[in-house]
Amino acid sequence: MSQLFNALWIEEDAAQHFQRRIIQRSIDDLPAGEVLIEVHWSSLNYKDALSATGNKGVTRHYPHTPGIDAAGIIVETQHPDWQVGDPVIVTGHDLGMNTSGGYGRYVRVPASWLVRCPENLSLQTAMLYGTAGLTAAISVYRLRQHAILPQNGEILVTGASGGVGSIGVGLLAHLGYRVVAATGKPEAKPLLERLGAHRIIGREELIDLSPRPLLKARWAGVLDTVGGDILATALKSVDYAGAVTCCGLVSAAEFATSVFPFILRGITLIGVESVEFPADERAILWTLMANEWRFPELESLMTVTDLETLNTVYIDKILHGQVQGRVVVKLA
């Protein structure tokens, strides 16, 4: 098949400067894989913006098409479990990092990367969730596995106006939790109120740089998306037998803490990653997100754009912290 399609293309020149533009690619140039998917929708994540600006910690080799999320229809398959016409979701694994990603009309991937799109979920809404939604869902799933339930007390969500944070707020509120949403963006307050936040606080309230090993217990659990000093303070502020999920580093990758929250309050720090999350649990969570865990205000998080505007506007916006909620990219 020699069909051409539009794709975002990132190139490195001889001076090691990176340029991005929309080009036409050939399906024949895609990497090997068992399944060819026509991408209808993708989404914008911070990692995509890093890849699109030449971050070699995300993408080692250029030229490259980013996009760690894709939802579309199978058009060719060499695997018996999948049929032409099946609606599928691909998130994580190596998509958009070192494998040509969802910012092109077609992707070719291993069959093991696919999740069947649930019947009650459109491809567009699947990308409204995307990696951010899956990460938020894994965080909630892990908190519930550690018996952090609505009756235990308030749940703190940090970075609440971002993709993971905003979906986390909506999901937890929908499940009956009293959510305290922390954000450095006062303009995000109306959005967080619509999503069901019980209280909204500024992120400066969550930074304690004192040498005290423990603070007053405030939270039954924490969904942290930012890391750094905010995560360190959250660990000192969790109630007995509480749990903290950690999935991001927007504030900082490093944080300083002590063993006291763990040995005196018995708290648990849970690392969350969605890239290699097991396929069986991944399918369970996508079904939950399509049904019982789908919250009424989900669509209010969505900004729809096309490939051209993604390139000229939204990639730079997310790098500068100017995106609230989720940007969904229409390919078809």
Rank of each mutant, 00 (worst) to 15 (best):
L288N: 13
I318Y: 01
I27N: 05
T131H: 05
A136R: 00
A52C: 10
L172I: 01
G168W: 08
S2D: 15
K56Q: 14
I37K: 00
P118C: 10
D29A: 13
K330R: 14
L214H: 06
T183G: 03
G321D: 06
Q19H: 14
D239M: 13
S237M: 04
I167T: 05
T99N: 14
P80S: 14
S258F: 02
L235Y: 09
R116A: 14
L301I: 10
G168M: 04
V169W: 00
T303P: 02
E299N: 11
T131Y: 09
L30P: 05
I10D: 03
T131W: 09
A241W: 07
L319W: 07
G266V: 05
L114D: 05
Y240W: 14
L149V: 13
V259M: 11
I207Q: 10
I73P: 03
I167E: 00
I270Q: 11
I68S: 08
D306R: 13
M302D: 02
Q151S: 12
E154Q: 15
N291T: 11
E254L: 15
L36T: 10
Q151V: 13
S139D: 02
L307A: 07
K216A: 10
S51K: 02
T257F: 08
E281G: 12
E187P: 00
V164D: 00
P118A: 09
T125L: 09
H79R: 12
L121D: 07
T268A: 11
M289W: 12
G271W: 12
I89A: 08
P150M: 06
A15C: 05
V238Q: 05
A136C: 05
R105Q: 14
I23L: 06
N152C: 10
R203P: 02
V259W: 11
A332L: 11
E254V: 15
D28A: 13
